[in-house]
Amino acid sequence: MAFNHWMILLFSVWANITWAHGESLVELDHAPLNIENRDQLLRGAKHFQQVCLTCHSMHYLRYDDITQEAGIIKERMPVWDDLSWGGRPPPDLSLIVKRRTADWLYTFLRAYYIDDTRPTGVNNLVWPNTSMPNPFISRQGTQQLLISEAHLHDSKGKYRWSQVLKLDRPGQMSGEEFDQYIDDIVNYLVYAADPSYLKREAYGPWVIGYLLILLFFVARLSMSYWDDVKRKHHMK
């Protein structure tokens, strides 16, 4: 709805001023968000169930139909001890978008490259030295870093990930397919972090529209009363 787009634009001006990119070595891509699209959310939920649910839980999303339909149920969620994984177990992902951002995740999940010095064999441009292995290697293929790491650190935030990474062994998916695949997951994660998003957007125009109508009448009534006062004031 046009009204909603304007409202979001209004607030996103502020977002661009305040948003910090953190530790990322590259500029973040803009994640195409399309939360209203239920089919895409369900696709994302199914990808999540196939890949992410192996290590990550979705603790706060238990009772909504999309999550249930995708088979992400409480009984199948992994539970990690605090001390497992060297004290850094894979985090719950229900609120990950609130901590990171959709853009961060969208770029992070595609910016892995081969790095034999890492225990996982891969490194990441958005989250350098992450302990998370690349779960999409069979789908995306493997990528090589084109410039030296030192150069990368010096030019922090100057490049985009696709400018400094090169696909050297293709995976099962084409580039576009994989972008869409990751975007599906990111959309689902955005939804998961705040399922009220859809409802807020649906109620917003009605509530604000109602208040504008009320404002019209209240303001006219107020002016009608204050005309008395103004007339008397100028008579004297």
């Binding site: 909603n4 409202m7 979001i8 209004l10 607030f11 502020w14 977002a15 305040t18 948003w19 609130k98 807020r200 957007e201 109620y203 917003g204 509530v207 604000i208 208040l211 504008l212 009320l214 404002l215 209240v218 303001a219 009534l221 107020s222 009363y225 204050w226 006062v229």
Partner: peptide
């Protein structure tokens, strides 16, 4: 005179308030 004027102000306030709640509840 002032009850009605205050109600006008309250409605203007609520418009801004709910715009924030519905469109940017954490206000970045």
């Amino acid at each position: 005179y002032f009850t009605i004027k205050d109600i006008v102000a309250a409605v203007v306030f609520l418009i801004i308030f709910f715009a924030v709640i519905f469109y940017d509840p954490t206000f970045h």
